[in-house]
Structure formats: structure tokens, C-alpha cells
Write a protein that binds this DNA or RNA. Structure first.
Lengths: 162, 162
DNA sequence: TTTCTTGCAAAGAGTTTGCAGCTTC
DNA sequence: GAAGCTGCAAACTCTTTGCAAGAAA
């Protein structure tokens, strides 16, 4: 069976690039951290564990390359660092993100949800959409629950104080 | 009648900040370029025209301050520069953007359009939305039209060649 | 051989910070 | 005169680039 890395290799070859050991190590790190939103530095440190001789510049160049080939999407959550997110295979659109302003966690939404909105934008603004970025900032379910617990605790303490 | 700058002044005072001449000049530049998406450097150069002695650091500090007070929103379109966008007065949500991948133009969408999507996200992911960022990347109406014209021109040239 | 790729170090770009001096209340 | 604010320069962070050496076709 053809693995994901084989398919990426083919994509590289199709664009006349090679899958060098450094590039392979980088891709493997991305595959192993598909849920995360790693910065170039993050990727570099993880790749270094497998290929200690790799340089940060190579990681940047590889990520840039993968971005060109649309294997990864480069995204910025406003903290001044670019993050690299593996695109779902065959996904028509880039997925969305939920960024928690309490704990910093980043969750993904794979569902598109934007079909209707995009239809409106394309027709009303006569804008041909090629890609999108949608990020919600707010409080994730985990922090939400934690706050409710603390609220109850507070209530209990108040009761004790009475 | 109370002007927009007066209201911003009040907001500053409410948070115990002053509207110094430098801050006022910066705010005025933002008001005069409400349609644009200026970087800190852009703002700096424009403010310099009115207040040549101002320093870049002051502009950064002022923009940071205005961002805190939610007078402006800081946004990043992926070109490695932060841009500062005046928030519509009383707007519940940050507006959306259309970034043209041909000419780089950035247009704004003031309509919310995301109500339904946000309702789904809040209930299905149990995520309390506080803010959002939505940007579409694609071809703006102007470039679109230009391309069609060129297409026609191309067709004509083909006819001549025959 | 020729072309592509790499690691290193240096450079670049954007942003933040330390600090002495200046305002303002 | 205490507190806040400013301009300047230096520092810092993230990213890109030049280049000589190395690997692959």
C-alpha cells in the first residue's frame, strides 16, 4: 500500500524536487504531529532528535517548499510566529481553528461550514475565492469547564463563610 | 457634537491614559486611512508628515495601546507584517477581509455573515467565541475584469495571426 | 560534470525594551 | 516632584540569504 510519505515524495518529484533525508525527516515530524501547530523552531527541535546534523535554514526551506506544494499551510495566530499545518489529503479547503485565549490551545475544525458564506461573497463582491483563513478566538470547552468548577468552589466557600 | 477623536480620548482617560499630541496624531492618521490596512511603518511615515519628531517606538506603543482598548484590531495577512485596522464604532465583531493574490489589494466586508457558523461552532464544539478572523484569498473583481479583457485581446491577436 | 541541496554564519526585517530627558498634573 | 510619556539606540526574535562544501543524477 502506498503511504502518505510516498505520495508526498511523488508530489516532490512531479515538481522536480528530491525527497532528501532532511526533507523526509521533516515531513515525518509533521505527520507525527498532525494535531499540533508547530512553528519552524518547534519542527527544527523535533527533527534534530532524529537527524541532529540538520540546520534550521533547511527546515525553513523545506517548510517553504511544502507550503508551495500545498502539503502544508502556513498560518499565523497573531503571536508573531508562522505555524505549519499539514493539509488534510484531498481537502478542498483549509480547515478552521479555535484558539483559546485562556490556555492557548489550538483545536481544529475540519468541517467546511463556509459554503454558504463563500457563495455570498463570490456573488456579491465578485471575488473569486481561492483560499480562506478562519480562526475563532475564545474560551475552549476545557477552560470553560474549569471556570465553572471554580465558580462552584467559590459558591461553596461563600456558603461556608456564612 | 462629540467627534470620534473625543470618544477615543474618553476611552483613553477611562483607562487612565492621556491623549498626548503624538497619540492624537497617530489616531488622526488612522481615521484618515480607515479604508487602508496600514503597517506600523506606514503609520509612522504618515504621522511623521504632521509630527516629524515622532519616533517609531512611540507609534508601536500607541498602536499597542489602541489595540488593548479595542480601538484598532491587529491583523496579519501572512506577509510577516502586522497591520492595524480601525474597528467600526460599536461593531460587535471584527469585519472580514478579501485579499487579492494578484494585486495585493485588501477589501473589507462589514457584514457579519458568520452568525450561523458561530452558532454551530459554539454549540457543537462548546467553544465560547470572543472574536474571529476571517480572510478570503483570491482574485478581486478588478483583476478578474482585467484578466477577461486580456483574454479577449488574446483572442483578437489569435484572429489576426490566422 | 552539472545540478540540486545542505549547514553555517551573516544579514535582514519587524518589533520591543532600557533609559535619560521631558511633560503634565 | 511623582508619574506618565517620548525619542533614540540597542537588543531581540523570527526568517531569509550567500556561499562553500557535499550529495545525487
Amino acid at each position: 500500500m502506498e503511504s502518505r510519505i510516498d505520495r508526498i515524495k511523488k508530489q516532490l518529484h512531479a515538481a522536480s524536487y528530491k525527497l532528501t533525508p532532511q526533507r523526509e525527516a521533516t515531513v515525518r515530524v509533521l505527520l507525527e504531529h498532525e494535531e499540533d501547530h508547530l512553528s519552524a523552531e518547534d519542527v527544527y527541535l523535533l527533527v534534530k532528535e532524529k537527524a541532529p546534523e540538520i540546520g534550521l535554514a533547511t527546515v525553513y526551506r523545506t517548510l517553504e517548499l511544502l507550503n508551495e506544494l500545498k502539503v502544508v499551510d502556513k498560518i499565523n495566530f497573531g503571536d508573531g510566529v508562522s505555524r505549519y499545518d499539514l493539509r488534510q489529503e484531498g481537502a478542498a479547503h483549509f480547515h478552521h481553528h479555535l484558539v483559546c485565549i485562556e490556555c492557548g490551545a489550538v483545536d481544529e475544525i475540519q468541517e467546511d461550514l463556509l459554503d454558504d458564506v463563500e457563495a455570498i461573497v463570490e456573488s456579491r463582491w465578485n471575488f473569486k475565492i481561492k483560499d480562506h483563513r478562519l480562526t475563532f478566538h475564545g474560551i475552549c470547552s476545557r477552560c470553560h469547564m474549569k471556570q465553572e468548577e471554580e465558580g462552584e468552589k467559590g459558591d461553596l466557600e461563600k456558603q461556608h463563610a456564612e
